[in-house]
Simulated scan of single mutants.
Amino acid sequence: MTLSVSVQHHFGGFTLDASFEAPAGVTALFGSSGSGKTTLVNAVSGLLRPDQARVEVGGRLLCDTEKGLCLPPHKRRVGYVFQEARLFPHLTVRQNLHYGRWFSKTRGSDAEESRLVEMLGIGALLDRRPGALSGGEKQRVAIGRALLSQPLMLLMDEPLAALDEARKAEILPYLERLRDDTDIPILYVSHSVAEVARLATTVVLLDKGKVLKTGPTEEVMSDPALAPAIGLREAGSVLSATVVTHHDDGLTELAAAGAKLFLPRIGGNPGDHVRVRIHANDVMLSLDPPGRVSALNTLPGTVTSIRTGGGPGAMVQMQAGDDQILARVTKRSAAALDLKPGTECYAIVKSVSVARADIGAGDQSMAKSDTTT
């Protein structure tokens, strides 16, 4: 189910002028604070009536100001999950879920509720009240309530922003299952590179009310031209990898970027698809295969672009297999190696430099594409 959005709105000295189209899956609205993410998602939900807009989900128009159509929020069939869970404190988890079903015209089915309860891992919580839940548990219940209203799409406005790192780690696998096990589009607002790299199918990068780029996560996040907007310290690559085997010494071997990639042991079985984010700051470049070095990962590739700014750094992009890798080096190093588009080189990555939070499940679309080739 595709999503098409075009919104223009001016208020208080700020102008939002953003348009994008996205396929099924998780579409992340990503950008710094004040870039227009929440304004855009509120326009999609109907909580904000923009100056001009056209919003279409799966062929159904929610808003077209030129035609005088702008459905109110309760008629858009949009589920909204906020930063705070906003559960009814006097109701149990089960009763909160039934409130979501009450908004559905068909009231949903017990089988559908059971499937969502299992998917979100909230079966043991059904008789508790929100006051007895952790932040991550509350958000999972809020997601279940939104889905049981049988929405055409789901909006999530920084749902992990209010959680500590432990609770984020707890809920991220459930969000991955939500991405893979439901067929409704999800519009996900975040300013966290790690969340976007792990969850998003498509990224819409916003800056000062404008769309800088829209495209697959691996493509957008690995674009050196967008590194300043993403943040130089956060810039990096998102690799699509496949688990090969788990070794007895605690390392997992992956197939990625046309080569082997060794990481501290991760979950999953051989054949499973995963995503790996590698920070540009953690990549070294060499013109020759490295000799006796401690780093286990040597990924051969070809330089495709080099971008420099006013500082001493250079952002080098290289093609390695089907993936793109970013390396942040100094201008002096780039000059010493005589790097330019077409230069063959090796990206060197320490296994321990990849944090566990930068490894996530690959989405099902990738697995399906593999089976059809």
Rank of each mutant, 00 (worst) to 15 (best):
A124I: 07
D157A: 07
E66L: 13
E112V: 11
V141C: 11
R107M: 04
F30W: 08
K67R: 15
G144Q: 09
L120Q: 11
K75Y: 11
L71I: 01
A146V: 03
D110W: 05
S109K: 10
P50V: 13
P72D: 03
R54E: 08
N96I: 03
L29A: 02
H98K: 11
G108V: 05
L126S: 14
D51N: 06
R77W: 12
L148E: 11
R107P: 10
N42M: 14
L148T: 08
L48N: 07
E84P: 12
E56R: 11
L148H: 06
C63I: 07
L69T: 14
L91W: 12
W102L: 14
E170C: 06
G34Q: 01
W102P: 10
E66N: 15
L160Q: 03
L48R: 13
C63F: 00
L172V: 14
S33K: 01
R94Q: 12
R128Q: 09
R54M: 09
P130V: 02
G144L: 10
G144I: 10
G68T: 04
W102D: 14
L71G: 02
G123K: 03
Y99H: 10
L40H: 10
A28Y: 00
L48Q: 10
V41N: 11
C70N: 15
V78H: 05
E118K: 11
A169I: 01
R54C: 09
G59T: 07
M119L: 15
G31E: 04
P130I: 04
L125K: 00
E84G: 10
P159N: 11
S104N: 13
R60L: 12
V117P: 12
P50Y: 08
